[in-house]
Amino acid sequence: MSATEIQALLRFLSADAKVPLATAMTKVKDLQKANLDSPEKLAKAKVGVIQHIFGEEKLAKYILTAARRVAKKRAAGDIDSGPSPKKKRRDGSLVSEETTTPAEIEESLALPTCADGDDELSRAVLFTNRAPLALAFVLTLLKHSMPEQPLSSRLSLAQGYIGVTSKARALYLGIDSGKSAEEEGFGEGQPSVTITGKEVKVLRRWGYEWRENEEGADQHGQGTQKEGRSLKTETDEADVNADSQENEQPPLWALDLEALKKSNTIGSTPALGQSRQGTSNLPIHTPQSARSYLLKAFDTAPSAEAEGMKKPSAAAKAAEKGRNLGKLLRALDLLYESWAATLTVEELDKRTWGWYVKVRPAVADGAAGWGGKNTLKLADVLALRREP
């Protein structure tokens, strides 16, 4: 099987069948052995054969349905089965679709950067809602509190934190009812990390070697000298022993327990076993969705000068939002860097929520303010920095 064929298979599994890319990469050899290395071949397979490889009947049925759909479209000439080498990100840069190595995956997730100084940043006024701002704060925090984690993991963990806090807030406001997935026992026994006081259940990404070398150039904030936080495990003694032999924790995914509850992908028993083989198909908060959410979230605050002017194209608006995100992340970097030399990881963690509350957009109280948008002044973020 050629590299191009492997890449095409991975694109089908991750994009069409919605299998997490990290999981899909572990199944390629099994699919090759079963002669199921293309959507056309999968479309003709029995669901039991696919289930034997992926270990989940519902997932196997979803893959089979996706394979039949893709195979039918290709037969009708609606889909080009060849590889598409390049596509544009929302920020306008090019990224290869053939991102099969961990290093390439991490590169594809790069976020917009900004070199603006204080004066330019201070003049920036954005228009957004609260959740993506909290996501940006936590993502920046994780660069210091979990420097051993790749960007893909930090995006997933930050989104996992937002998922936990949003669910709790929705229940408190009466927008949602019942209990959270974790309260009902989903994810019981899984390891977890604590981020600004909230416990986020995680899945270890064994074998994900994302650094190209041991020195590992400072990829997306990896060069900080702060010691990362430890992983709290409940009952997985084998994994605890394995972790104790390593200098740092393996990369992590944040589990999406609410999605697990809705799909019930592990059957009727919410508490799952601790074997590594039994967790590969659990739903996670994907870094791609977190990145996409951030790229779409930060508009420019409306102004009198903009009234009556021609509306920008969708591409121009997307590029503008990308630049705004870069400015926000730059301001947050300056904030955390100003305190990193004097505060411990735990102290940075504790201060993050308070910093966010001080600058978050003002919205109506209670359920009326759910999802509401308002202005965000980057000058307010910069004002939180430690004085020299």
Rank of each mutant, 00 (worst) to 15 (best):
I6Q: 11
Q7V: 11
L10C: 05
A15F: 05
A17L: 09
K18N: 14
P20C: 12
P20E: 14
L21W: 08
L21Y: 07
A22V: 14
A22E: 13
A24H: 03
T26M: 12
L31T: 03
N35E: 14
L36M: 09
K41Q: 14
L42Q: 09
A45N: 03
I50L: 14
A75Q: 14
A76Y: 05
A76N: 10
G82D: 12
S84F: 10
R89S: 11
G92N: 07
G92D: 09
E97L: 15
E98I: 11
E98L: 11
T101K: 13
E104A: 14
L109K: 04
C114D: 15
A115L: 10
A115Y: 04
D116L: 09
G117P: 00
E120A: 14
S122D: 08
T128A: 04
P132H: 05
L133K: 00
T140C: 06
L141Y: 01
L142Y: 02
P147Q: 08
E148W: 05
L151S: 02
L151N: 01
S152V: 05
L155R: 01
L155A: 05
L155T: 04
A158D: 04
T165D: 09
A170L: 08
A170I: 02
G174A: 11
G178W: 09
G178H: 10
F186D: 01
G187K: 03
G187R: 03
G189P: 03
G189Q: 08
P191A: 13
T194H: 06
T196R: 07
K198I: 04
V200T: 06
V200E: 02
Y208K: 04
E209C: 06
W210P: 00
G216P: 00
Q219S: 12
H220P: 01
Q222P: 00
G223C: 08
T224Q: 10
E227D: 11
T233M: 14
D236R: 10
E237V: 13
V240Q: 13
N241E: 15
S244M: 13
Q245F: 09
P250D: 11
P251S: 09
W253H: 14
L255Y: 04
E258I: 05
A259H: 09
S263N: 10
S263K: 11
T265N: 07
G267Q: 12
A271P: 03
H285C: 13
P287G: 13
Y293H: 12
Y293K: 08
L295A: 06
K296P: 00
K296Q: 15
F298C: 03
A301M: 09
S303M: 10
E307T: 13
K311P: 01
A314V: 12
A318E: 12
A319M: 10
R323I: 10
N324W: 06
L325E: 02
K327D: 07
L328A: 03
R330P: 00
L332V: 01
L334T: 02
L334G: 02
W339I: 04
A340G: 02
E347N: 05
E347Y: 01
L348T: 01
K350S: 15
K350A: 15
W353C: 01
W353M: 07
G354F: 07
Y356M: 05
A362Y: 05
D365F: 07
A368D: 15
G372S: 14
K377W: 05
L384Y: 07
R385V: 06
E387K: 15
